[in-house]
Amino acid sequence: MKSRFSSSNPRLLELHEKHASAYMSSQPPSESYSYRVQKLLLQQLREETPGIEIVADHLSMSVRSLQMKLKDEGTSYQKILNHVRKHLAIAYLQEPKVTKGEIAHLLGFSEISVFSRTFKKWTGKSPSEYQSAVAV
Rank of each mutant, 00 (worst) to 15 (best):
T123D: 00
K18M: 11
R85V: 02
S128M: 10
A104H: 03
R11N: 12
S76E: 09
L81P: 02
Q131R: 15
Q94I: 07
S7V: 06
V84N: 03
Q131D: 06
E48C: 12
E17S: 15
I103M: 14
E129N: 09
E102I: 11
D72T: 09
H83Q: 14
S3T: 05
L42N: 01
Y35L: 09
S113A: 05
D72C: 10
G74N: 12
F5R: 01
P10F: 05
Y35D: 04
P10S: 10
E73T: 06
V134G: 08
R117K: 08
V114G: 02
L13A: 09
V63A: 05
D72K: 13
Y130R: 04
G124I: 03
E73W: 07
K18Y: 09
F119Q: 02
Q78G: 08
Y35P: 02
S34W: 08
H105I: 11
T49K: 08
P29H: 07
G108L: 00
E53Q: 09
E111G: 01
R11L: 12
R85M: 08
L88V: 04
L66D: 05
E95D: 13
M1W: 03
E129K: 11
E73I: 06
K69T: 13
A104G: 08
M1C: 05
Q44C: 13
K2M: 07
P29M: 12
L81T: 01
L66F: 03
L107I: 03
Q27R: 14
V114F: 03
P29I: 11
A56N: 01
L40T: 04
Q43M: 11
M24F: 08
S128I: 12
H58W: 01
E17P: 09
F5Y: 06
A135Y: 09
Y130P: 00
T123L: 01
E31S: 10
T49S: 12
R85A: 04
L59F: 00
A91L: 08
M1S: 12
Q131L: 13
A56C: 03
Q38E: 15
S7C: 06
L40Q: 05
A22R: 12
Q43P: 01
S25A: 15
I103S: 07
K69N: 10
I103C: 11
K71S: 15
E95I: 10
I90A: 14
E102M: 10
S60Y: 01
Y77V: 02
G74C: 07
